[in-house]
Design a protein around this nucleic acid. Structure first.
Lengths: 311, 311
DNA sequence: GCCCGGGACGAAAATATCTTTCATTCCGTG
DNA sequence: CACGGAATGAAAGATATTTTCGTCCCGGGC
């Protein structure tokens, strides 16, 4: 009795979302926290051995992970594919890329007794990984839309607290340098107070790794309701903050640990996104941005070299 | 020049012919003469557009080539695959390889008319490069010395203005989280005022890319003269700031350009150094740092709402 | 010219695989 | 400790792939 409605796509409400080619590993890590236990097992297996999983049928993968076919399909959906068949295809592609590409590197976690040289190497590797994953997983359509909004904005507010607050400030500093009206708010009260002033044509950006920081969501919600164009920079594309975001820019989440708190790698990804926004806007408004950039550079020149030698 | 180990899949012990990874086009040409007319049409379509064919079901490909499913399967067999399913998988892999093969244009500078996807790729690549260079060039002896000083410091002041000011704040935030007394100063006057209070056993850290920022050098000089242990995080190991630094931590300087100001890549390197300092100190003071870290984490928990998806 | 064998080819049945549904189980909560 | 809701898997349902089998076309022999 099932009247065949074309319901193949759009089950998760992401119509213009193209599947991920090589950004799969990143996507797994990004979405893992919002997955259920069984799904995590599947996702882990998939990220762990793309080639091996690509050779398995849905039943095989279900058995391998000790779950059911349904769970495997659910996981595939969550990762952005219409079904397992397409995930498998992407997996084969990923495997081929890895094969032709380079070998994976050290993935050990940082230990308390690691020599300092190892710490440097591991941190650098992790942050590089975060950059690669974030770049691969970034939705350029969303990014372009955000850039367009920023370039034409009357005024831009950026919200972020804690480590993300610094990212917000970084973006603000950059935008100011090319002549945009931008403010960073880390005080939640002031943020809301200012958000009320926003209207259509303005832009509000929320930076939060977890996507659950109430102090950041609240001003974004206000801005959203006032008609401003809202952007969320978050590591959880399904988190509450995205409810009020016209455009969601997802940062990749690398592994975290006791000695390597979230603030470290999430910040790296967030900053990349911020840089992309900045360069994008600078491109769009080049005629105005270029002179502004050099002007700000020159204005600072006299504060350098002003050092006197010893006493 | 990566020496790749040839991966052979010998799990099932199938002595016949292992599937062809990328040599598919060649195989098609080799076997074409021995094919029947319909099969040739299929093989041609497959060799012509791997990506497109990978998206098709056996029925779709049959229709596209004006043949039947059986013929498609026969062709797949002839090409050395158990069935169409596996051919399709190989096709997806081939497509992915081709895709990734054409992305070496990243080494160029960012141009005003670069599409947004290129901007993302170039920025990510550059920052990765910066990380690698900084990690490679970092003097671990100096780093270890700085860590030791920090771990035993009564109090730590961090100086930085502009973009480096955010890095200074980042370090401060982290150190505070593990129970150290740290302050970031971006106000030059207050920085100097506070520097006067420092004495032997305290630590002062200056963050400046150019190493010539007077506003940052001055407080470091004061701290240096008061007997504090001083550290410089700079991109120029021979710049004025190093005069007053007991330990110099050098960040790598990547290429900069009009659209890519210094603040971007220097910041990335600085943050890596900061992370290394943080982890190093956390290691040294693990017994105190670990509880402090989890305490600060828990204290923030209630500011996050429970996250669950559900449309 | 007509008949016949051999093989290409495709329609449809048979099978494998994927997807959906739905009842059960598990877990957190009041 | 019962309750509600989500997570999960078993099995039904839908698709895709493979196999089967008969038709048709071609070329050669009678």
């Amino acid at each position: 009795m099932t009247n065949d409605v074309k319901e193949i796509f759009g089950s998760a409400g992401a119509p213009p979302a193209p599947p991920a080619p090589a950004a799969l590993a990143a996507k797994v890590r990004t979405l893992a926290p919002s997955m259920t236990r069984s799904m995590q097992r599947v996702a882990e297996a998939v990220a762990d051995d793309p080639a091996g999983c690509a050779a398995l049928t849905v039943t095989g993968l279900a058995e391998l992970t000790g779950t059911s076919e349904a769970t495997v399909v659910r996981t595939a959906r969550l990762l952005g594919y219409p079904g397992y068949r397409d995930l498998r295809l992407a997996l084969a592609g990923l495997a081929a890329q890895q094969q032709s590409g380079r070998a994976p590197a050290i993935t050990t976690d940082i230990a308390v007794d690691d020599p300092i040289a190892d710490v440097v190497a591991k941190l650098a590797y992790d942050e590089q990984q975060t950059l690669a994953d974030t770049a691969a997983g970034l939705d350029t359509v969303q990014l372009a839309a955000a850039v367009t909004a920023l370039a034409g904005a009357r005024r831009t507010d950026v919200y972020g607290v804690g480590a993300s607050g610094l990212v917000a400030q970084d973006l603000t500093q950059k935008l100011l340098r090319i002549g945009l009206m931008a403010h960073a708010h880390s005080d939640p009260h002031l943020a809301v107070t200012n958000a009320v002033q926003l209207r259509s044509g303005d832009v509000a950006i929320a930076v939060t790794h977890s996507g659950t920081t109430g102090d950041v969501i609240e001003p974004l919600r206000v801005a959203f309701e006032r008609g401003a164009t809202t952007v969320a920079v978050t590591g959880r594309p399904d988190s509450p903050v995205t409810q009020y975001a016209d455009h969601v820019l997802t940062t990749s989440t690398a592994r975290e640990s006791e000695l390597r708190p979230a603030a470290m790698s999430s910040r790296t990804g967030q900053l990349l996104v911020v840089d992309c926004l900045f360069v994008g806007v600078a491109q769009r408004t080049y005629d105005a941005a270029a002179p502004a950039l050099s002007a700000s550079y020159e204005a600072l020149a006299h504060r350098h070299r002003a050092t006197r030698k010893g006493p």
